[in-house]
Computed example of a mutant assay.
Amino acid sequence: MAVHWYPGHMHKAQKEIKQVLPQVDLLIEVLDARIPYSSENPAIAQLRGDKPCIKVLSKTDLADPVVTATWQEYLERERSVKTFAATTEQPAQMKKIIELCRKMLPEKEASVKTINTMIVGIPNVGKSTLINILADRIIAKTGNEAAVTKHQQRINLGNGITLFDTPGILWPKVENPNSGYRLAATGAIKDTAMEYDDVGFYAADYLIKAYPECLKERFKLTSIGATEIEFLEAAAGSRGALMAGGRVNLHKICEVLINELRSGKLGRISLETPEMVEHEEAEMASVAAKKAADKIKRKQSFKTGSLTPDKKDRKEKRESDRAAQSARMKKQHRARSK
């Protein structure tokens, strides 16, 4: 799925992050526990470099706990990275992030210097709610929609820790098409920038393979079918998402499916695993390599031209004649100069 939603303030926010980053000791990157890979902005990883980073897996109450644990182990293989899995419904637990900041910067703690942190993340991952919990007061505007925060701000958390808040930012091009669907399904992209039917079909295809029992229980079905269309038809009948003549209202049932996935009514569901994304990245690398090879081939073809055997022979003869003529002219020139 191609994502065509990159508001101007996101471009500005990325520039501001780059400017402030030299002052920052540690990054707090908030990820959606259901899609840790797809909700991780690759631009942040490039800007961060070797700075210590706490990857907060938010919305863990909506994610599959077994998959979340797998992601924590996977992410912590990276140097200077620690993970923190919790939900904003547990404010006391979330406040332990401050203790983790101190543990990751023992030299700052020992010198009693201010620890400058920066919180980053894509839209609608619970970043603003986390800030309010850490600050013990309402500072950041929250809302169950993408792109609520529009401006950067500096917040004193007390106890020698300062927090730079930044607007949630996506990136201009989501390379992995699966990530585009996952971002849309979890609400990181505004609904006006997506097609419910398209995203609903993607979600249904994944869920009937990964969480069939959740679908059966939620939609009260004995069988969900083998394909997304079979499931959606059965679910539409269960929910009354039908039009005149008993035809299935696909838009309505897809909207129901997405909203219930987002709210957790389907159960605790994760939309990607480390194994899945490694396979997808390998496929993307293969496609990129093929594109690069095709580009080289096109350039070479443009240089030589598209030649049939007889055209190739005539071209070779012209080049041979030119070479012979050039040799004669050089010989005549040398003869005259003697």
Rank of each mutant, 00 (worst) to 15 (best):
V120D: 01
K173W: 02
A147P: 11
P106Y: 11
P167S: 06
G160E: 03
T83W: 01
V174C: 04
D136M: 14
I138A: 15
G143L: 05
Q93T: 05
T192D: 14
K127Q: 02
Q153V: 11
A92E: 13
Y211H: 08
C101Q: 04
L134N: 02
I155V: 14
S80F: 13
L207H: 05
N176F: 07
T129S: 13
E109P: 02
C214W: 08
I208D: 01
A203R: 02
L105M: 09
G180F: 03
G158F: 04
Y211A: 10
T117G: 12
T192L: 12
S223Q: 09
Q153I: 10
G143Q: 14
I138D: 14
A185I: 03
A147D: 09
T114H: 15
V81I: 15
K190R: 15
G121I: 00
T227F: 09
V112W: 13
V81T: 09
C101N: 06
I169L: 14
G126Y: 00
V120R: 01
E89D: 11
G160A: 11
S80C: 15
A85K: 08
I97Q: 00
L221D: 11
L130H: 04
A203K: 03
T83E: 01
K82P: 14
G143S: 12
K141W: 02
I169S: 10
N144M: 02
E217N: 12
F219S: 04
T87C: 12
N178R: 11
T114F: 14
L100Q: 05
P172D: 10
E107K: 13
T129C: 07
T117Q: 08
A146M: 04
A204G: 09
T83P: 01
I208L: 08
I161Q: 03
L221A: 09
E145I: 12
T149S: 04
P91C: 10
I208V: 11
A92L: 10
K96F: 08
E228P: 13
N116F: 11
C214H: 11
D165L: 04
D198L: 03
W171D: 03
M194G: 06
L207P: 03
Y181K: 07
I122R: 01
E213P: 04
K216G: 07
D136L: 13
E107S: 14
M118F: 05
Y181H: 12
D205W: 06
L157N: 09
A110G: 03
I161V: 10
K127Y: 05
T129H: 05
A210G: 10
G143P: 13
K141M: 11
R154G: 15
T149V: 07
L183K: 03
A210I: 14
K108E: 00
K103T: 06
I208C: 05
P212S: 08
L130I: 13
G126K: 01
V148H: 06
V112L: 15
K108L: 11
I131Q: 04
Q152S: 14
T186W: 00
V174F: 00
T117M: 08
E217P: 10
D136A: 14
P106C: 13
